[in-house]
């Protein structure tokens, strides 16, 4: 099932903590129910995005790996 994101944030090349900080800002700008596609190359982002969604309560709808890119779909829940 393909997910159509409402916004795309490319954090390729960025190191911790920038992907998390930028994701927070991008999700804040969404409406509830909308989905952000975030692309990162930092391997740490897999555990960081899981932790970030658990702590903030937003939903990690899906994540995938494409070559050296880690792709996350995050739904704003509140």
């Amino acid at each position: 099932m393909a997910i159509t994101p409402d916004d795309v944030l490319d954090c390729s090349g960025l190191a911790c903590p920038m992907p998390i900080l930028k994701t927070k800002k991008a999700v804040d700008a969404l409406q509830i129910g909308q989905v952000l596609k975030m692309i990162a190359t930092d391997p740490g982002s897999t555990s960081d995005m899981k932790a970030w969604t658990e702590k903030t309560g937003h939903e990690l709808v899906a994540s995938e790996i494409e070559g050296d890119k880690f792709i996350f779909f995050i739904k704003k829940t509140k």
Partner: peptide, 12 residues
């Protein structure tokens, strides 16, 4: 600085 800014991103 990394922990403090990340804390903000985690709604802390």
């Amino acid at each position: 600085l990394i922990l403090a800014t990340s804390a903000l991103a985690l709604d802390m």
